[in-house]
């Protein structure tokens, strides 16, 4: 969501910049009595369309819905960027770096090719979830590699490790 927000702000800024320049050019041309860069029909549409018209109501409903979706996305609780190590000493690990490190540990298991790890926190317990491509028989090895890496990271209480191993597709 943080990345989406940043991209959306950039888009909004570019739209404001472009729209503002277009509006300034149109205003200047109108002041000089010359035809503007915008299609001529838009002003007629705005002066004839009524609030009760179906397209106008449709656009209003879409705008409301978009606003509600954005509002919901902004107000819901986001995944914290840090994972707390213990209660009281103020130490945290950067979540993304931990997930990358754990994914690398999983990929070090023979027969595992691609791996993605997400770490959720329930109370003080870390609950890693692994999605990997490899032999399903390597599940125990994956769990072992993950536990060893979590030990190295001095992770606090650990919840159950969820492992999903998808066999690699054979090429004909």
């Amino acid at each position: 969501m943080r990345t989406v927000n940043r991209a959306a702000t950039l888009l909004l800024a570019v739209a404001l910049l472009g729209g503002g320049v277009l509006m300034a050019v149109a205003g200047l041309l109108a002041a000089l009595g010359r035809p503007g860069p915008l299609p001529s029909g838009w002003s007629a549409t705005l002066t004839t369309a009524r609030w009760a018209d179906a397209p106008v109501r449709g656009v209003a409903a879409a705008v409301t819905l978009l606003g509600l979706v954005v509002l919901g996305a902004e107000l819901r609780r986001w995944r914290p960027t840090r994972l707390r190590l213990t209660d009281d000493d103020g130490w945290h690990l950067h979540r993304r770096s931990v997930e990358r490190r754990l994914a690398r540990a999983v990929r070090s298991v023979p027969s595992v090719r691609r791996a993605r790890v997400r770490v959720r926190r329930r109370g003080d317990a870390w609950r890693p979830r692994v999605t990997a491509t490899g032999d399903p028989a390597a599940r125990a090895d994956v769990e072992f590699a993950l536990r060893r890496e979590l030990d190295r990271l001095t992770a606090p209480r650990r919840g159950p490790i969820e492992v999903r191993l998808v066999p690699a597709r054979r090429t004909p």
Partner: peptide, 26 residues
């Protein structure tokens, strides 16, 4: 007219300036 056109042009410039400031901040 023609001052209304100039007023719209000034409004457009202010909008573009806002966009530029937002772009720089983002």
């Amino acid at each position: 007219a023609p001052w209304s056109g100039l007023a719209v042009a000034v409004g457009g410039l202010l909008l573009a300036l806002l966009g530029q400031r937002l772009l720089a901040a983002a």
